[in-house]
């Protein structure tokens, strides 16, 4: 069996808002786990469980209150804002629920916006072709459907050749058929480019596609399981 390469180590990670005050909230409470390279991981949990907080910390958009976030032997939790910027630039791809495309840039320009930052990016046209938008490269976001916009967002995240692709409810604003194709796309990408994909969702059905499933509840990891036989997205009954 091939030795799995650990890309992320999370040790006793906590995120506390308004610490010491009456309205203190423990969004994450001593969470620990590792993520392997090329793995398709789903973080599942109800609203307010802390899954998005965890994703934001993994993406360098937020910092933990306590604990360590080790990415390829570097302790990201100790990074200053400039180092976090460079971390996001070089290592991370982010896909949002509501796409967050820039309306006045065409599809290809939205992708180029990210590729312009990378040292060795994919070709923006190629990556759009890969996500099935070869004929829509010059369209502006409002001219695209929700699924198409999410594909552009995925292309934008991928073009930098990130080592970690983080997806926050990427199918939340899509219908089931489109959602299914998006998940399929993410899984393909994970395998083809050997990118670790972490997807946050509250939809338990989607979790059936995951190679690894982490269930978060009340800021703690409830279960962390590996699925040897994940379902294909099209097999899922949404």
């Amino acid at each position: 069996m091939e030795q799995e390469e650990v890309i992320i180590k999370i040790n006793n990670l906590s995120k506390i808002y308004n610490e010491g005050k009456e309205n203190e909230v423990r969004a994450l409470n001593s969470v620990s786990f590792n993520l392997n390279k090329g793995e398709f991981t789903v973080i599942l949990g109800p609203s307010g469980a802390g899954k998005s907080t965890l994703l934001n910390i993994l993406g360098g958009m937020d910092t933990p209150s306590y604990g360590d976030f080790i990415f390829e032997d570097a302790n990201v939790s100790k990074y200053n804002p400039e180092e976090l910027t460079m971390f996001r630039r070089k290592k991370i791809g982010f896909v949002f629920q509501f796409y967050n495309l820039i309306a006045n840039l065409s599809a290809v320009e939205n992708v180029q916006l990210a590729s312009a930052l990378a040292d060795d990016p994919f070709d923006s046209y190629d990556i759009l072709e890969k996500v099935g938008l070869a004929k829509r490269v010059n369209n502006f976001p409002p001219q695209l459907s929700g699924g198409e916009q999410q594909r552009v967002a995925i292309a934008r995240a991928l073009v930098k050749k990130p080592q970690l692709l983080l997806c926050d409810e990427p199918t939340g604003a899509l219908d089931s058929k489109t959602g299914s194709t998006i998940i399929a796309l993410l899984k393909d990408i994970s395998k083809e480019f050997n990118i670790s994909v972490v997807m946050v969702t509250h939809n338990a059905k989607i979790a059936e596609c995951a190679e690894r499933l982490i269930i978060v509840r009340d800021g703690r990891i409830d279960t962390d399981t590996t699925n040897k036989n994940p379902k294909k997205p099209e097999e899922i009954n949404w």
Binding site: N104, L105, S106, V108, E109, Q112, L113, S115, A116, L117, D123, S124, Y125, K135, R136, V137, N138, N139, F140, P142, Q143
Partner: peptide
């Protein structure tokens, strides 16, 4: 409202993106 029309794709362009241009 989209006020810009998508350009027709004649051939694949070379990817020469830079932040200033964008």
């Amino acid at each position: 409202n989209v006020i810009f029309k998508a350009k027709r794709i004649k051939k694949k362009k070379t990817d020469k993106a830079n932040t200033f241009k964008l």
